[in-house]
Nucleic acid binder design. Structure first.
Lengths: 133, 133, 133, 133
DNA sequence: GTGGTCTAGACCACA
DNA sequence: GTGGTCTAGACCACT
């Protein structure tokens, strides 16, 4: 089963950013493996019904961030770079993000259980994105 | 000690939204009490070194959402209303926070499962704080 | 005297990259100071006679690399971030780059003196870019 | 031990140019001697896992520049010509190397002056190597 | 075929 | 006024 892309045009998140996030998510969760080829710019532009330049912009940000690497005329591939971030930084970052997240939802008056449910729902959607746009 | 405002010009979050969020957060955490007076638009614009219109926009959104009351010529006060956050805003906020959270952990190369575990651990710690912490 | 931009359309280096490099150079050599404002996208597009999007692309790469930071509606400013790179890394990088450079010119059969002259010439050009494009 | 080829897919340098540069470098440093035979197009394409046309393009540029001679049906050989690098190519190469060098040190946040000093120091060391190094 | 660069022009969000 | 996003379409370099 291939890695799927999809766009949500109601979320207010720019298309190109949705694509960037989707790839990062795929890489982080090993749905996209190092060396794996991404769809061509043209192909994805047809699939997602958006302009070619929008895809190109997303891919070029991914390249700049070292997440993919691009060989002109050949394609775009998930970078071989194992996590650039060292494990201790990763752990610290994770804790910080978790604490901030829990603080923010409590500031909104949201119970932790509700947040967990929401996270799981979004997670499920991301694992199996809907076909439509 | 007074409730403080500050702006982060690196986060990419618009100034007016940072102000709105700050007030909501303050109210939710009882750092701003019902009836308490907010700084004047003019004062805050000087303090934060931003345009007057930017502050005005933030206050007007807060007014619209019933979080503050503006008395012409007197000032802006935290509303007496208990239910500061309306459910649809709450839902939107929750989704946004969850999406951002998942994006950020992905960017750190952390799998969603790891993050869930971390969240649960922190949550458990907060419910049953160890002595001394 | 203001920091000047200029484009060389013969070098084969893309316009947007020339702009990126120019800013990085300016920051590294303290011709652009932290907090200093860059020309607006529109202004620079007029000055350099290139499309608005080309400038925007350059600025957006600079933003992504943390060299500038952007506040929508306000402008683009040189980032306050003091060199993200720690000094020992900097020193190591410098030595590596210098060695590689000396190796490469000798591989081309170029004497060190010639290279120094060329470096100084380019350096002079960059300090005082020609008015034309 | 044979002269080795390798490709770096992260550098952004086109494959064909990497091959051209590698041969020039080998010739300049006498790792490839006049009359020595290069791998066949077919062989190299297998070794490097790139398209046959890419190798062919590299060899054809080398032929055009007089660096190698191709004997139909026999193979490709390093040219007997002394002056492998023609002056205009040399000049272009020098400029490109200098520009890249200045860009890279800027990206490290190093001032041009510091780099000049470092270059001179390394140069001096190389001219008068310390005992033991 | 692949990706990269650039233009012209539209519309939106923010200060 | 500022920057951000997106489209449509052209042309180029590389495989």
């Amino acid at each position: 089963m291939a890695f799927r892309f999809s766009l949500n045009n109601k979320s207010g998140v720019p298309y190109y950013r949705q694509i960037v996030n989707r790839v990062i998510y795929g890489v982080a969760n090993e749905m996209l493996l190092p060396g794996e080829r991404l769809p061509t710019v043209r192909q994805l532009s047809v699939d997602l019904q958006v302009n070619l330049n929008t895809i190109a912009k997303a891919y070029s940000e991914l390249e700049l961030r070292g997440i993919v690497n691009t060989q002109q005329g050949t394609g775009t591939f998930v970078s071989q770079n194992e996590s650039v971030i060292d494990p201790s930084e990763k752990e610290k970052g994770l804790l910080r993000l978790c604490r901030t997240f829990l603080d923010e939802i409590s500031a909104l008056g949201i119970k932790t259980d509700e947040a967990f449910t929401a996270l799981k729902t979004i997670e499920k959607e991301r694992k199996n994105p809907k076909k439509g746009s």
